[in-house]
Every structure is written in C-alpha cells, then in structure tokens.
Amino acid sequence: MYGATFAAWRAEAAEPWHAYTHHPFVEGLGDGSLPRAAYLRYLVQDYLFLIHFSRAWALAVTKAGTVDEMRFAACTLDALLNEEIALHVATCAAEGLDEATLFTAEELPQNIAYTRYVLDAGHSGDFLDLLAALAPCVLGYGEIGLRLSAAKGKTPYADWIDTYAGEGNQQVCHEVGALLDAAVTRQLGDRPMESPRWPQLSHRFVTATRLEIGFWDMALPE
C-alpha cells in the first residue's frame, strides 16, 4: 500500500497492527458509537502528541543522510506546525476547547510513553530508527482512514475519517513510504531483510505500534 518496507514491517507486526487499526476506538469512529467524551479526551492528548511529533520531524532533519531527506523532513515539519496543528486547533475550538486549554492540559502517561519513545529512537539511533518509530502513526492513520471511508458508515466523526482518507493525506503516506524505502535501500542495500539491522528496525516498528494501541486505550472510558 505504502511501499515495500512498510508492507514487510506490517506483515511482521500482524497481530498488534490489527489490534491498532481495528481498535474499539477506531471502530467507534467508524460506526459513530464512540462516546463524545472519549473523542474530546483524544483530541486534547492528540494536540500534545502533535507538538512532540513535530519535534521528532525536526530531529529527522539532523538525522537525515541526504539533502532530499532533509528537505522532506523540513517540509513535513512545516506542514505539521503550520497546517495540521492549526486544523486540529480549529477542530477543538468547534468543540469548545481553545488552544490555551490544549497547551496547558496534563499529558497522560500513555502519551508520554509513546512520544518519548519516538524521540529517544531518533536521539539514540539514526534516521532509519526514527522513521521506524514514526511510521505506525503516519501510515496507520492513512490505512484506518481509507478503511473507514470505504465502509461509508453514517457517523458524527466523518470529518476525522475524511481527513485521513483524503487525497492530501494519502499523498503524504505514499511519499513517506517512498522515503522509507529509499532510506532503507541506501543504508541496508537491495536485500534489507538480510541485514543484521532489520530485526532491530522491525522491533522499533512493532513497539511504536503497541504504543499506538495504548494511545487509543487512553481515550476510552475505564
């Protein structure tokens, strides 16, 4: 769907990947059964997540091995800070949550665990480590959006679904998949799965996927 590397990691992470992309929170978005309070809880935490996600893409600029990789990371950072976060703020404002409320909200443990894991992957590893930790969010949301959009269910969360199923986001997903494939080929060669680094990178992808599950869990009523 989004490149050979993603397809391979997704297959190796089949069980947690399904749990992430078919989580009760996700299914509730699709059929409209998700409690509004859970959605608002998610929106607040997702704002904080996007702040750290932006920092991770800023880190990607310094970890990149080519000018093209630097340009891509810089463009992604710009889009996050000046487009996606602004869109998120507008969405929250419509729900009665202003940006000051979002910025000063308490960051929950599941959010801390996930975002700091991604940042640590970049600080302690290289560009591939960082991409492996970033990929589940970028590409998972794209996959979820497409699946829920295809179901054409009537739901109050249609705007969320349309955002991630939309042409703009799907283009980003394909570009990230191509970036990942190119970086893997550059560093690991034409047979990356035979590289001694492959299991470590695959494990990073699995770990980030499991942390995505925890992020969904965080929003649901206890």
Rank of each mutant, 00 (worst) to 15 (best):
Y2V: 01
F6L: 12
W9T: 05
W9E: 12
R10Q: 12
R10M: 10
E15G: 02
E15C: 01
W17S: 05
H18P: 00
H18M: 12
H23C: 08
F25N: 08
E27A: 00
L29F: 08
G30A: 15
D31R: 02
G32R: 12
G32N: 14
R36M: 07
A38H: 02
L40A: 04
R41Y: 02
L43M: 09
V44Y: 00
D46I: 15
Y47H: 12
F49E: 07
F49H: 03
I51K: 06
I51T: 11
F53Y: 15
F53E: 11
S54H: 11
S54V: 13
R55I: 08
R55V: 04
W57C: 00
L59T: 03
A60V: 09
D68K: 14
D68V: 02
E69Y: 02
R71N: 13
R71S: 08
F72M: 13
F72S: 11
A73H: 12
A74C: 03
A74F: 11
A74M: 06
C75Q: 11
T76K: 13
D78P: 04
A79H: 05
L80H: 08
E83N: 15
E84S: 05
A86L: 13
L87F: 04
A90R: 01
C92G: 13
A93R: 04
A94M: 08
E95P: 00
G96L: 14
L97I: 15
L97M: 10
L97N: 04
D98R: 11
T104D: 02
L108A: 12
L108T: 04
N111E: 04
A113I: 11
T115H: 09
R116G: 10
